[in-house]
Amino acid sequence: MPHQYPIQLRRADMDAYGHVNNVVYLSYVDEARQDMLTSATGGGDLGENVVVAKHAISYLSPLVYRPERVRVDTVVRHVGDSSFTLAHEVRDDETSYCRVESVLVAFDPVAGVSRAITEPERSALSGLT
């Protein structure tokens, strides 16, 4: 069951082409990831202390501002030693607008280096496949 996060669009998300700007989709995903990591790990620090290693973004369909929300569906594709892969979809019931696959690395902010994913985190992430 994917994590689902509603996103309220803003008219100013659109650029001169009259569509939500490419870069803005990533901010929707950013917010959904934050919510997923914080709630899935029971408020643990994985939400704050991760670094994005890479994104692969596919723009599928243009999105025009409307008051009805879109949502970001997120599943966990893979959990490694200190990194994990998420797959996100920005969509509504009719249309898939954008897909993003991201590799995140768990980070120790004090030591300034990556850290191992803990067993409780691993278990929580594995529940979101």
Binding site: N22, V51, V52, K54, H55, A56, I57, S58, Y59
Partner: peptide
């Protein structure tokens, strides 16, 4: 010009 796909790797902060 429409961006269909964009892949990015973050190497250094």
């Amino acid at each position: 010009m429409v961006v269909a796909q964009l892949d990015i790797e973050y190497l250094r902060p």
